[in-house]
């Protein structure tokens, strides 16, 4: 049984790890941390494999685990890590460690702008528009109602546009 579980997790990892890592990365804006939380997501999926209900897809399920872990992490960042960030690196939140992950030039503006908007806006845009989840699945992942997903997305898109304008990547007249 556990051998099967392990194989399945490995399979899920191959299929979904990049998508999950990038979702977490957009939320926490720190590569190393995103990697750790991705690790935790899959280990947790293994631990709670029995509780995985087939009526939601494994992708939705993995994303909700990732989302919960990320929210918990953001709520209680470790002071020691924070110390490192502020005093050793003078960390720029939007830069990525290129030897591990990088973003193509064409999308870097968008990546940057997404990093600047509200957490709730960001996650709803990432899930709906980037990851392509349905409203229903997005609601499941975020533990929101479907109408909250809709109304938040409705506000999030203009907020993202505003951010793009602010940074000079988007012409005001197109809005």
């Amino acid at each position: 049984m556990s051998e099967y579980r392990k194989l399945e997790i490995a399979d899920w990892y191959d299929q979904h790890s990049k998508s999950i890592l990038s979702f977490i990365l957009l939320m926490v804006k720190d590569y190393q941390q995103a990697e750790d939380l991705t690790h935790d997501t899959f280990v947790k999926a293994y631990l709670y494999h029995n509780s995985f209900k087939q009526h939601s897809s494994e992708r939705t399920w993995l994303f909700s685990i990732a989302h919960n872990l990320t929210v918990d992490f953001l709520r209680k960042r470790k002071p020691s890590r924070f110390f490192k960030e502020v005093f050793l690196f003078q960390k720029d939140n939007t830069s990525l460690p290129e030897e591990m992950i990088r973003i193509k030039e064409e999308s870097s503006e968008l990546y940057k702008a997404l990093g600047e908007i509200k957490d709730t806006y960001r996650k709803v845009i990432v899930l709906r528009k980037i990851k392509g989840f349905s409203i229903e699945d997005t609601a499941k992942i975020l533990s929101w109602t479907e109408s909250k997903v809709k109304s938040t997305l409705f506000r999030a898109i203009p907020a993202l546009k505003k951010q793009l304008i602010k940074e000079g990547y988007l012409d005001e007249k197109t809005i």
Partner: peptide, 8 residues
């Protein structure tokens, strides 16, 4: 954006 993020 999803595709443009390249993970080593």
């Amino acid at each position: 954006l999803n595709a443009d993020l390249l993970w080593k």
